[in-house]
Each structure stands twice: as C-alpha cells, then as structure tokens.
Design a protein around this nucleic acid. Sequence first.
DNA 1: AAAAAATGGATAGGAGCACTTTCTACTATC
DNA 2: GATAGTAGAAAGTGCTCCTATCCATTTTTT
Lengths: 209, 209
Amino acid sequence: MRIAELSRRTDVPVPTIKYYLREGLLSAGERTSHNQAQYAESHVRRLRLVKALIEVGGLSVAATREVLEKMYGPGMSPLDSVGKAQFAMTNSRPVIEDEAWEAASKQTEELIEQLGWQVRQTNPARQTLTSALATLSRLGQTEQLKLLEGYAQAARQVAQAEMELLVQEPDADALIERAIVWTALGDIVFSALRRFAQEDIAYGGSAKQ
Amino acid sequence: MRIAELSRRTDVPVPTIKYYLREGLLSAGERTSHNQAQYAESHVRRLRLVKALIEVGGLSVAATREVLEKMYGPGMSPLDSVGKAQFAMTNSRPVIEDEAWEAASKQTEELIEQLGWQVRQTNPARQTLTSALATLSRLGQTEQLKLLEGYAQAARQVAQAEMELLVQEPDADALIERAIVWTALGDIVFSALRRFAQEDIAYGGSAKQ
DNA sequence: AAAAAATGGATAGGAGCACTTTCTACTATC
DNA sequence: GATAGTAGAAAGTGCTCCTATCCATTTTTT
C-alpha cells in the first residue's frame, strides 16, 4: 500500500507519518521508484503501536524511539523484553541529592530488602520511587510510608498475572510488542481502576471485597 | 519573609515564583509597600506542593492550577476531596468514538457492574480506561482483558488502605493536601513498585508471596 | 547620608517539542 | 495533457515553561 492508505488505516496524517519516518520510529517503505514506496502490514502494526505509545501511553516521540530501538535491538531472553521496555519507558530526571533524597534512597533500599525482591541497582524505577518518597518527606507526608508494603503486595499480584500471560505468547515479536504495550498501558489501566475504587469507597463502599 | 527567602526555602528560583504568581498557582503576599510583599509559612507550604505536583507528579502548570482551584474552592465533605483531586488530575483528551471505542466503553461499563462498584458517570477515569481498552483492542491485545479483574482487586486493596489513612487526618486543609499529594504520587509509587515486582519475577521470582 | 542590594511589575526572549506547511521535483493515472 | 499523488527537505507554527532584562522604588549596609 502507499502512504495514503497507511494513513487511512492507522488514522495518522500523512505528514505525521513522514515525520515519524524521519525520526526513525518507522522503517522506510520499499521503494518502487525514485519517489514512491510501498508499505506493508508490518508498517500498519508498527504505526499503530507508535500511535498508542504516544497518544495513550503519553510517551514523547524521543522516548518512543528509544523504546523501539532497545526492544527490537539485539534480543536476549523473552523476559528481558519486559526489563528493556521498563528501562526505556521510565523517564529519569536529573536528581538533586539533598538530605531528603538520601533518606528516601535508604527507604527504597530497605523496602526492597524487606520484601526480599531482586531489583537491579540500575533499574530506573529505583530513582522514581526515591524521588517520590523524597517529595513526600519534603511535604511532611510521612504517614504514607505505612502504605508502601500494601502497595508492594498489590503490585506483585498484578505483576505476577501479567508475567504469566506474557510468557504464554510463543511468537517472539508478538511477545516484545505485548511487553511494550502492557508496560505502557498497564500503568494507565491500574491508575483508572484505583480511581474507581477510591470513588466507590468514598461514596458507596458497599461493593464486595 | 520576602521573596528571596521564599525562594531559598523552597528551592524555586525567584523568576519562577513570579511566574507562578502570575499564573495563579500561588496567592500574592501581603503588601507592605508599593513594591514589597511579605510571604508567610503558608506560601512555603503551597509552593512546595506546587513544585511537587509539577516536578514529580508531572502535572502541567495549567493542570496544577485547576487542581488547586477545585480543591480549595467551595468545600464539601472530606471524602469529596479525593474525588475532586482525581477529577482535576485526570487529563482527558478529546475522544474519537469509533467502533473500537464503543466496544471498549461497553467493556468498562460491564467491568464496573460486575465489580458492583459505584462510579459516577462523570468520573473522567471512565474515559481513561475506555481509551486504554480501545487501544489494546486496536493493537490486537485482547488477551489482556483477563487481567482486568485482578487489577481491580489490587486497586481496591490499595485504595482501601489509602482512604483509611486519609480520614484519620483531622485538619481539613491538611486532608485536602494529603488527598492531592497522594492522588498524584500514588500512581508514581505504584508504578515503580510494579516495575520492581516485574523484575523480581522475571529474573529471580524467589521472593515471598 | 551615600552606596549597594533587593523587590515588584512588566515585557521580551528563548529553548524544546510535536507537528504542519510549504516548496520543489518528479511519477502515475484518468 | 491535466490532475493527483509522492518523496524529501526546510521552514514555520503553536504551545509550554520558564529565564532575562529593564525600571522605579525601597531596604539595607557602610
């Protein structure tokens, strides 16, 4: 198919497709002449993935490129896919290491140890959690620390179910895509459900446990 | 205190404070002369809150203003605070209602009914979830629907603990602030813990359940 | 009292991002 | 042969979030 059809089938404007091509989010089509190219089903799939990551997942164009590069780069074990997806998707801002940050970093370490989890030092989520804890401390919201363990248990339940579903996928490429999609959208889905639950508890609370 | 001290104590540059004042994120100080103003402890608190929402919570300046306006506007019950915080913090993009969206909307309804939760039609998280489900469907990731109920249960656990902690706060203003902070940072904390759990399961998996 | 520093208010500027538009040069189709 | 489509490059647009500068007026320091 040509670019116009690719555009129609993915609901992405032609100029935007060209922009994504330039930015390396999409591989070039097969050239049929000096200024014509054919696009395949794989382009449709990829473009829909890109669109999902950007529009629903809230990733920037640059972050999306990074994710795709890492994921479809030299591949290792299937389970690595999840790790790679995460690493690429966790945006780490430069950290200012003051006292609050130091204390929060310690809290993060202690939590991981207490849970007995294996989390690499390089996992960017460590920084994310530390930043959040440091912020809570700076705002005087120290009570919330009690919640952490409950959060962690809920997170593990969720992750367990996800991973089980993930490894059921036999096709390597499909697995990679699933890891990307679910890493990006899982946060959003859970966040929405948490808001549902908060509202139910606040106003009704009558639901089954 | 004057603006320089406010800046020092919150680690926000003076020009940025002025910007936030213009944007209505911070109330003006008490004028002591034509071009001098005094700031109080309440300004320090507020500015730290604003900084947290923008830098760690990832909210835009406009969204932050909306949150603050709604939260400190005409107040109702304490539990309403959480609802308001959510409503203001859930960014809803305009929705394109195609077939995938229609089907996803139905799935959202069904899930809520199945859980027996009370979720208002106006809750913006409904749109968020529907968008996410529609995207998953467009990407052919229909398997993931199985996970929804497990997600919902985990979300309810988390929300239950949060709400219990929230209502323990006797001071009204502190409760509002806690609702804001925890709505914004809870997502981030949970997301980080989910990544921890995923890594643990993928590589180790030996941790206690 | 004189000099230096700080403040408030206003406006201008700048960087980054995600496109969008415009341009030229061809090619394909009716 | 007119019309429409395409590629590629470059410039432009609109938005957000600050940052810098200017100025008249204090305030503080010496």
